[in-house]
Each structure stands twice: as C-alpha cells, then as structure tokens.
Design a protein around this nucleic acid. Structure first.
Lengths: 238, 238
DNA sequence: TATTTGTACTTGTATTTACAAGTCAGAGTT
DNA sequence: AACTCTGACTTGTAAATACAAGTACAAATA
C-alpha cells in the first residue's frame, strides 16, 4: 500500500470528492472516464472503479453505462444521514460546533435505546453533548455516549473545531465504518432542550438515535440527536 | 452473463439475503467464508465479494478482517431510508398497502419540491397515493408523482399487492438504482392527511421528499411521504 | 502458569485481462 | 430530410492471481 497506509482507491476518492466539493467539476459535468483516470493517477480500472463506487454511493456522481460518470448536484440539506457528516453539505463557513457538556464519566442512562454488551456496561460511559449551529442559529443538539475503554486524555481534547471522527482516527486509529439509526418526529420533549435549540415547547423536532460502527471490533459510538428542521432539512441518499 | 440477464453477484446477494431474512443465519452467526462461497456457488472471489459488499452496505452483515462476515441483527423499524423498501424490515404479514388515489394524469403541483426538466414538464404527470398500514394502523401516506412517458397500461395496474418497484422492473424493465431525500419534522399539515393517518392536528409527523433514480436515463420517480412515527421509527443504515 | 510466537485461517487491497452492453455521433442510405 | 447503420467510445460484469493485514488458536517458551 501507499503513503500513510491509506489505500489508493481511498486517496483517489478523496481527491475527486474535493474537486467536486470545490466546484472544479460542476453539476452535470462528466468526470474523466475510468480509463483516463487510470492513466492520470497510475492506477488500474478496478481500483479506479472502487473510488467511483464510493462517490456514487455517497451521491456525488451518478454513473451511466455508455456515457460516463455525471457529477450530481451537491446536497442542499444537512447530510447527517450519510457517513460524511455535517461539514460537507452545508459548507464549513456556516457551521459551528459548541461543546455544551464537556466529556466526563457518567453511568449509562437507564432508558438507553440500544442494548449494551457486558463489556460496555463494565467499562462505563464517557458522556458529552455538543450543539451544531448553522449561520449562528442552533440546529442540532448531539448527545454522545462512548464506552470508556482505553482512550487516554480523551476528555482533555477540544471537540469544537475538529470533528469527533477525526480525533478518533488521528489519536486512536479508530476508523468510523458506518452505523444505524432510528428516526422519529416528536414534539420537543424537554425544557432544557428547548432552551438549547431556542425553540418553543411544542415545536416538532427530529429525534435520531444512532449507533456508529468503528474499525475496532465491538466498539460503538452512541449518539442521540435532536434536530430543529424548520429551516434545514436533513438530507440523505440511498 | 447468466439466466434472465441477472448478474451472478446479484443472484448470490439475493440468495444470501433471503437466507438471512428467513432466519437460516441468525444474528451473530458467521457467513461461510468468501472462499467457501466461491466453491459453493462456482464463482470467483471478486464476484462473491461484490455480493457481500451489497449485503454489508444494506446492513445485513458486518465484515471483519481476519474473522469473517457476521450476520447483523435485522432492523426493527421501517427501513424506508434504504432502497430495500418497507417490506423487509417489518415482515410481510403485518404490512398492508391501500391505494387511496388511483393512478391518473394530473398537472405537476405548483409547489413541487424538486426542479423538473423540460422533458418532465412536457410529458405531464402521473399521480397516485397509497397508504401503508402496519398491523392495521395507518403509518405512512405516500404521494407519488411519475413523469408520464411511455408506460402503457400503467394506470390499470394494481398497486396494492405488488410493489411499485416490482411492477416497474417486471413490466417496463426499469430498475430502481437509488435516490435522495429530504427529511423534516412537521406538525400534521392538512386535515385530509390527519384523517388518512388517523392522527390529531398537532401530532408531529415525519415529512420526506424523495427523488428516486432509475436505470432509465433522466427518469425519476418522485414521492412525498407523511409518516406517523409514534409507534414505529424509521430505520436507516449508513 | 503466563506470555510469546507461529500458523492457518479470514477479509482487504491491487493488478491484469476479457468480453458484454449502453450511448453517441457521424457516415451512409433511403 | 429522415432514417439506419457502424464504429468508437463509455461503464458493467467476470475471471484468475497475488500479496497485505487482522484474528484466533495452538504450540513453544519464559
């Protein structure tokens, strides 16, 4: 493999993705053909195709037999349903993250929506919450739970600027692989959450319960989200 | 290629998927290894891997380097966020579909949430609505719009028993490839919809706007969903 | 006994090659 | 002018092969 142990298909994926997000390719443009990409980057077609698989899977391109890979329009909502996270979709300029409750140990909640393994119960729970603001207005309140297993100095890290996923990858070599989520529409449940999201008591909000898979076997990240969708939809591709 | 023009990786995918859904493999079980699957089905590893890619992508298995492919627990919610549709997740027994407005021509709505191409506007719009009930209780109201291009006898077909996607595939050779959707939480907007979903006026409901991609170039299916999530969450993997 | 090492498995990544099938544009025909 | 055909492209499917890297377990070692 290549520099930094990052596979080549992943590197090409990141490159193309950046080019699309930066506007180098616009909506409707044809990407270079697979064979052209092979020559350009010194790769073979299966490798190039794997990169394009990722891009297509995340909705950046759509492929057409006999035609080529067409650049899709960029999602306008908040792409929280995809693994790419919130930053891509809405533009970094407008997105702000504030830590409300700093990381600290606490017992697992009694009404935890996912079933926990014995190991997870034993390890205990690292808990913290963050607020995501778009153009200065609160949109998502993110309540996170992580099993407290061997993450030295985790609570000291600054979660505001860097994304949680980046910290996990850089500091602990834990890669986020995917996850599952349950979605409901509810009325804002809690005066506390109403205050944080700056909404009235009976405002409908999206309620998401997510379990996020990592490259570490049996290590999951849990998070519960409350999302005010009056101004911004959530966006997902499938 | 093999019988019926269905690629081999797709056939193996369908087989394994059925085995998992039918309970032949249970949660936590190891699937046969890739090499075993090769021998069993007379395929090569890249082909087998492509099948497993699909299964992993839809959340049926999780693969672990050095260990194997572990069968994931079946989703408990309504898997409407994934391409597999609603039928898999909740069990066919409990799911019922009723056509409320039968297919017919109508103009495109003025406030249509997606931008339409000239061809689509020209073709006009086939419109129909369906109600999905779980255990006899209405859960999802699905308002569909399809461009009216060359689908002979479409309005005569029975949408209750067979899924729309199956009809498109069997009768018109149109394959559903994926799609995108915007999700909001709103208060039930419309007395009509409240009546159909059997909910009170201020009940929070999920509001989904979906554009579904097909194998036919520039042919999209549009649908707007209202979903009562008080009893059933929507479920998605990513 | 507790630890390390090795080995045999697993999936992950990558190359090479071949043919099938869809799209498009231009040449040729009617 | 309208149509058909052909050829040069595109992506889709499939095989055979090789090595890297993670996991689990048994054997060897301290």
């Amino acid at each position: 493999m290549s520099p930094g142990n990052i596979p080549q298909y992943r590197q090409l994926y990141e490159t193309l993705r950046r080019h699309i997000v930066d506007g180098l390719y616009r909506e409707g443009d044809l990407l270079p053909s697979e064979n052209e990409l092979c020559k350009l980057h010194g790769l073979t077609r299966p490798t190039v195709r794997k990169s394009l698989d990722l891009l297509a899977h995340e909705g950046f391109i759509k492929r057409h037999q006999g035609l080529g890979s067409v650049v899709h329009k960029l999602p306008k909502g908040i792409g929280i349903l995809s693994i790419s996270g919130t930053t891509t979709a809405i533009g970094k300029e407008n997105l702000e993250t504030r830590t409300i409750i700093r990381p600290g140990l606490s017992p697992w909640p009694d009404d935890f929506p996912f079933s926990l393994s014995d190991n997870e119960r034993e390890a205990g729970c690292m808990h913290f919450t963050r607020l995501r603001l778009v153009n200065g207005k609160p949109v998502i309140y993110d309540i996170s739970y992580i099993p407290n297993i061997n993450l030295p100095r985790f609570s000291a890290r600054n979660l505001n600027n860097k994304s949680l996923f980046n910290i996990l990858r850089a500091a602990y070599r834990i890669e986020v692989k995917g996850g599952e989520q349950y979605i409901k529409a509810i009325n804002a449940p809690d005066p506390e959450i109403c205050r944080i999201l700056d909404i009235k008591h009976d405002t409908p909000v999206l309620h998401l319960q997510r379990r996020i898979d990592t490259s570490r076997l049996n290590f999951y990240i849990y998070s519960i989200l409350y999302c005010n969708t009056s101004d911004h939809s959530l966006y997902g591709i499938f």
